[in-house]
Design a protein around this nucleic acid. Structure first.
Lengths: 122, 122
DNA sequence: CCGCGATATGATGTTTTCATCATGCCGCTA
DNA sequence: TAGCGGCATGATGAAAACATCATATCGCGG
């Protein structure tokens, strides 16, 4: 029997959580859910333009990682974030990313202000 | 030419960041760095018990994702977090994880308080 | 200047994840 | 209850990430 999540070293569980987040479509899905509180699969499909079964697989990954919860009402299924802290996590990530990207841009700008590299300069 | 990070859709860049975090050893490394401000490769190797080149590859991944910065002094190389917000990100993640795990444990406890499943009961 | 300890890079086989397609299940409505 | 729309699951080939080993670089002491 594999170890249950709660008796594995915490850094493994953490890495596992990040694996759940490590795909562009899944980020998009989570951000849609973060903005809207509750979104139907049909709406997600419309927004993401993913093929139904492909979307469904990503939703399944998110469920497996306990990042989203789903509820069936009538013939539609609605998803929402499993925990409000996920919103917080996304927000911190965005802030971090903006820091990193702006430093990148600075480096890029600095590089571009240098003289161009030509065949002769080598 | 591939798109530079800063001109790609943000959700791709975000997913990419999470990919950088999506490995147990890399989490361990980041946590060691988060606690200590600056750690030499030799110390990281001692703590993680990784083979040198294996550790070095993970450090290289972390560098590529701009999560850590390194500096060589004398014959040793020292690593530190590239941005203080990474500490914040790890903290939020820990908090989120504890929420998720405690809910897991609740479900587990509830399940264990039910009568056992036996061959006869099926 | 040579060799050694410390770290990094490259190449390769293996495992994991992704994308796609086919198929299955469920609840609604005719 | 038959059939359809909405969603999920399973199987398969392709792509990416991982682990391991061999090799390369860099600084220092001898």
């Amino acid at each position: 029997m594999p170890l249950s999540q709660s008796q594995r070293p915490l850094y493994e569980v953490k890495a596992n959580l990040f694996k759940g987040l490590a795909h562009p479509y899944r980020i998009r899905i989570l951000e849609l859910l973060a903005d809207a509180d509750e979104v139907s699969v049909a709406a997600l499909q419309a927004e993401t333009e993913l093929e139904a079964s492909h979307l469904s697989q990503h939703l399944s990954v998110l469920r497996r990682h306990h990042l989203v919860a789903s509820e069936r009402r009538a013939s539609h299924v609605y998803y929402r974030l499993a925990d409000p802290r996920i919103r917080e996590l996304l927000a911190v990530t965005r802030a971090l990313l903006l820091n990193i990207l702006s430093e990148d841009r600075d480096r890029l700008d600095a590089a571009q202000s240098l003289p161009a590299i030509t065949a002769e300069s080598l």
